[in-house]
Design a protein around this nucleic acid. Structure first.
Length: 206
DNA sequence: CTCGAGATGGCCT
DNA sequence: GGCCATCTCGAGT
């Protein structure tokens, strides 16, 4: 998919809105689950974006970000959650787009089984950690080529992206990148509710 | 709907 | 040791 490669080689703030409406497919022994992406966030590269894992350079965790565009970058956070990104920009630039939410368009029963606590179908992949659970993604899938038709996890770009109804600051990221829009969301009930970054509460003194 | 708080462990300075 | 690209639950408006 040449057009996909070229798009994903661009800066993450350019590629991110074009991913709205894209189809993300995950095949497993259980079967196939596919999402239509509705919410994403851009993360810049080394030295560019203080909110990015790549800001301080290459580490074992973020190595996939330094690879070619179109790769799946999955990382573990908060001691219990996985989050999925698409690597963008030229190889070595280490930028990426976080996949924050989507609507299940295939494999509804499988997704419901994986997300037993979801109150409704719109919550199945509403939020970055819920999205990875619905798709069955963990660190095992880190580094997969999303544009390879033989890959079990694939990204199929929409010919016509969904309009970016929300363009603004990122969720849960403080300070960084004022002046650049990093978060993009379609007008859709699966878009996660915006929550500004909240400082962690301090423990009480004894 | 909103808000607050706890869970829980890897990563990096 | 401090900081997380979060989720769930309970209680309040």
């Amino acid at each position: 998919m040449v057009r996909g490669r070229r798009l994903l080689s661009s800066h993450p703030t350019v590629a991110a809105p074009r991913l709205l409406g894209a189809r993300l497919v995950s095949d497993s022994p259980e079967g196939r689950v596919a999402l239509q992406l509705t919410e994403v966030e851009a993360y810049g590269g080394q030295g560019e974006d203080p909110g990015s894992h790549a800001f301080r350079g290459l580490t074992p965790r973020n190595a996939t970000m330094f690879g070619p565009p179109g790769r799946l970058y999955v990382y573990f956070t908060y001691g219990m959650h996985w989050c999925a990104n698409v690597v963008t920009g030229p190889e070595g630039s280490a930028s990426a787009v976080l996949l924050r939410a989507g609507g299940v368009v295939e494999g509804l029963e499988i997704a419901r089984g994986r997300r037993a606590t979801a109150r409704s179908d719109r919550d199945l992949a509403r939020g970055p950690a819920r999205l990875t659970v619905a798709l069955g993604l963990t660190g095992d899938e880190d580094g997969l080529d999303l544009l390879d038709p033989a890959s079990p996890v694939r990204l199929e770009l929409a010919r016509q992206p969904l309009p970016a109804h929300i363009v603004g600051p990122r969720t849960g990221v403080s300070g960084a990148g004022a002046g650049t829009p990093w978060r993009f969301a379609a007008e859709d009930p699966t878009v996660s509710p915006y929550r500004a970054a909240t400082p962690r509460k301090q423990r009480e003194a004894p």
